[in-house]
Design a protein around this nucleic acid. Structure first.
Length: 492
RNA sequence: CGGGAAGUAGCGCAGUCCGGUAGCGUACCUGGUUUGGGACCAGGUGGUCGCAGGUUCGAAUCCUGUCUUCCCGACCA
């Protein structure tokens, strides 16, 4: 009867799967590697999307939509980008099915309906977008182009995990075009800041901003900036990326503009994205063995009210009283649910909403009505207390803010406690094998060393933090000279 | 793609070794008692056992093939 959850200590990835499925964020589907995002999970995504969308618009961006399919000839135009994604592309080769003559009731691909040119299901949209921008841009007056699209993309991953890595996922991808490199770089950094702002202040997930090494760079980018988060099991998660694409795509798609002096120049580009993966990061940052813990600012339900009654008469009285509370909450912009369904008893509801991560639960019964109070339980600390009915809306508003900041502080404390400096190889491995987390260590700056470390330690350079202090040292692997520590971790 | 596991009622599972016409928990329906941490009693509904062949008087069970999903790795957001 109880929805048994695997504990984190037992099996962290099973715990994660249990939460996603039993918390009704998503479900497996009949399609390999593709998930169904359930209404509760989608509501969460909608909240995230709405906030981000507002932030994009506040920074001058507009939404547009480009096709799902990319003709192969366009896809291959930017060589590095194409090469980077080629091995994980779904490809459309035919456009029609016919009845299978050998197999009654079955269909087969019509061999007559082969496409002249294969269509790639977008793993990312630079190609189709830059092919379009070519027709939008003639003059410096057409710049900048600041466009974002909300879309699904497909990457045929070998191994998938709910939200963290699915074959199809939802995301947004910003694609901007600029007259100068400086402006494009400023845009890249601006969007990195937008992401960090969103993830920290709305999702309560602390992140480290940094730049990727050449090895980890987005295929086709000059520079990839990222925000890196740390999960409870000590593994890192790339939470968002913002790329300075230089003139790579402009050259590949021949996108030039006339500047003020009527000189033809290639356009400078950026692209940036975050995906439904953030939901996975959210789960693994805050949740516990009782279920999800959602930050108030993006929780689909911020407050759930559970009535406790004996008999229809009491229920009717509570319904009436709670209707006032709900009205007051809604007027204050609080997302509230009154669960007066009669098929589940209070204890069941308590457990259910804890599993769903609802930040605040209010229980109210005859006893409370008498005392003009309610029982209030917060999900983050599991504390219960009696709260006066008088000024309840204000109390709840304040508490939602407090929970939000508590979640962030708690996650940040954990994260900070799991950033360790390592000065030798043994120390490096020991940290990774025990507590995990981020390890700040010297690296000689070469791709070979980075590869070797990845191979032996299964750890990658997550980023070189922005504003990283310079510090002379020796590479933990090769002992060669190094000018700064970089951030290593095992990652999702 | 390599290794492992699994497909039987909405969900979670047993039954498969040793063939005899499908069972448990939960959910669901009806009635009643309940309701401050996952209620109880009584009665009920629901499954061509992933799919396709084969062996057999008879297949969830044996054989062959096939599809799908999950987990662990290599790849990646």
């Amino acid at each position: 009867m109880a929805k048994e959850l695997t504990s984190r200590a037992q099996d962290y990835s099973q715990w994660y799967n249990d939460l996603v499925i039993k918390g009704e964020l998503a479900d497996y589907s009949a399609v390999r590697g593709c998930m169904v995002i359930k209404p509760y999970g989608y509501a969460l995504w909608e909240n995230m999307r709405d906030v981000l969308d507002r932030m994009f618009k506040e920074t001058g961006h507009q939404n547009a939509y480009f096709p799902l399919f990319v003709p192969k000839s366009l896809f291959e135009a930017e060589e590095k980008n194409a090469e980077g994604f080629a091995k994980e592309c779904a490809v459309v080769t035919h456009y029609r099915l016919i009845a299978d003559p050998k197999n009654k009731g079955k269909l087969m691909v019509d061999p007559e309906a082969k496409l002249e040119e294969e269509l790639i299901v977008r793993p990312t949209s630079e190609a189709i977008i830059w092919n379009t921008y070519k027709t939008w841009i003639q003059s410096y007056r057409d710049l900048p182009i600041l466009v974002n699209q909300w879309a699904n993309v497909v990457r045929w991953e070998m191994r998938t995990r709910l939200f963290l890595r699915t074959a199809e996922f939802l995301w947004q991808e910003g694609h901007t075009a600029h007259a100068t490199a400086q402006e494009a770089i400023a845009e890249t950094k601006q969007m990195l800041d937008v992401y960090a702002d969103f993830v920290e202040n709305w999702m309560a997930v602390p992140v480290i901003k940094g730049v990727k090494t050449a090895n980890e760079r987005f295929a086709g980018a000059e520079d990839t900036f990222c925000i890196e988060a740390l999960m409870q099991d000590g593994k890192a998660l790339q939470a968002g990326t913002s790329h300075f694409l230089g003139q790579n795509f402009a050259k590949a798609f021949d996108v030039k503009f006339s500047d003020q002096n009527n000189k033809q120049e290639y356009v400078w580009a950026t692209s940036w994205g975050v995906s439904t993966r953030l939901i996975g990061g959210l789960v693994m940052t805050h949740s516990d063995d009782e279920g999800l813990v959602l930050p108030p600012r993006i929780a689909p339900i911020q407050v759930v009210i559970v009535p406790i009654y004996k008999g229809e008469e009491q229920k009717a009285i509570l319904d009436e009283k709670v209707a006032e509370i709900v009205k007051s909450f809604k007027a204050a912009g609080i997302r509230v649910k009154y669960d007066n369904s009669d098929h589940a008893r209070p204890g069941w509801k308590f457990a259910e909403y804890e599993l769903k991560g609802v930040p605040i639960r209010i229980a109210i019964g005859a006893r409370d009505l008498e005392n003009k109070q309610v029982e209030l339980a917060r999900r983050d600390t599991k504390e219960k207390s009696s709260i006066a009915m008088e000024g309840l809306t204000q109390t709840v508003e304040t508490l939602l803010v407090e929970i939000q900041s508590n979640l962030f502080e708690r996650a940040k404390k954990y994260r900070d406690e799991h950033i360790t400096k390592a000065d030798s190889w043994d120390e490096f491995i020991k940290i990774l094998d025990t507590d995990g987390g981020f390890v700040l260590a010297h690296w000689d700056g070469t791709a070979e060393t980075e590869d070797k470390i990845k191979e032996i330690a299964k750890a990658t350079i997550r980023c070189i933090p922005l504003d990283n202090p310079l510090e002379k040292g020796k590479c933990i692997l090769t002992g060669n000279a190094s000018t700064q520590r970089v951030l290593f971790a095992r990652a999702y």
